[in-house]
């Protein structure tokens, strides 16, 4: 490397410039961010913002309707303030939604990548095995596994994670196949790169956006499923507050106080929709980034 080459390079007037991605704020993205952000805040600040204790209640104040002074969202069958239980219930909702997806995401993505990069026989073996799992209706499978494992948050998370591995793996595999056909992979392979290094340095960054978008929406689904598991008595144990469990509690009073049961239901719906919207917003943002590329 000659001296004037160094000078030429160092004296280059243009700074090495990176393109700054623009954020595409659409209505969906804003709504999603607000809802999910709000949910996170509520979960984090629960001890500070909940008006009263979520676990102890005054039986003499049971089944107050919405709008009662001191308990704006009413009280449940044991006199516990519903608003406080709702706020505290944000934690298990988030944990129950995010954790299984995180676990399934890592395992599913790995399986999908291995399958996508494998020769035909290996790929078929992995994907057809996962298809068996995929064939079961997810919630039934989750309940079956959960029932086998027994109640409790951990078991609920595990059973949901197992159920979600197959769909994530499918998305991952499809993405890998799409990326695999691009020339830059051939260039690396022809130059002696191992499958492993291609997988980690080239394939993974290219499938990550689609996987992140998919998993974000999957969180919305997982929240509903985990509430469902708790509803059936398989998740969070009483008296700890959990939206699914609250729904189960309050539905017995549906003739006297129909509106009370709507509260946890609305919370589950809102959380789920929030994550879906966030997923949509992410999709739009990432599509725009890759827009110019033909891949």
């Amino acid at each position: 490397m000659s001296a004037d080459t160094i000078t030429r390079v160092v004296a280059s007037p243009l700074p090495v410039r990176r393109a700054r991605p623009r954020v595409r704020w659409g209505a969906e993205t804003v709504a999603g961010v607000v809802i999910v952000g709000g949910l996170l805040l509520v979960a984090l600040l629960a001890p500070l913002i909940a008006p009263s204790s979520p676990t102890s209640g005054d039986v003499s104040r049971r089944l107050f309707d919405l709008g009662t002074a001191g308990s704006p969202l009413g009280t449940d069958g044991q006199g516990r303030d519903i608003l406080s239980r709702l706020i505290w219930g944000a934690r298990p909702a988030l944990i129950g939604g995010v954790t299984p997806v995180l676990i399934a995401g890592v395992i599913g993505a790995t399986l999908g990548m291995v399958a996508g990069l494998a020769p035909r026989f290996g790929r078929s073996a992995i994907m057809r095995t996962l298809d068996v799992l995929y064939a079961f209706p997810a919630i039934l499978l989750a309940v079956a596994i959960g029932a086998a494992l027994g109640p409790g948050v951990t078991n609920s998370v595990v059973s949901l994670a197992v159920v979600l591995i197959a769909p994530v793996a499918r998305v991952a595999e499809a993405e890998v196949l799409r990326v695999r056909s691009a020339d830059f992979i051939d260039v690396a392979r022809a130059s002696g790169a191992t499958r492993a290094i291609i997988a980690v340095r080239q394939v993974l960054p290219n499938i990550a956006p689609a996987l992140i978008v998919y998993c974000t929406s999957l969180i919305g689904l997982a929240i509903v499923y985990s509430a469902g598991m708790s509803f059936l008595g398989l998740g969070v144990a009483p008296p700890n507050p959990d939206w699914g469990q609250m729904l189960n509690d309050l539905r017995q009073f549906i003739y006297d106080r129909p509106l009370l049961a709507l509260v946890p239901a609305a919370a589950i719906l809102l959380a789920s929709v929030g994550f879906n919207l966030l997923g949509d917003g992410l999709k739009r943002q990432l599509d725009v980034r890759d827009g110019e590329v033909l891949l």
Binding site: F184, V187, S191, N206
Partner: peptide, 18 residues
């Protein structure tokens, strides 16, 4: 593999977009 290199056809996909 070092000494034999390739320039592919499609400029848009011959580099990692990320």
């Amino acid at each position: 593999r070092r000494e034999v290199q390739v320039v592919p056809q499609n400029p848009q996909t011959s580099f990692n977009p990320r």
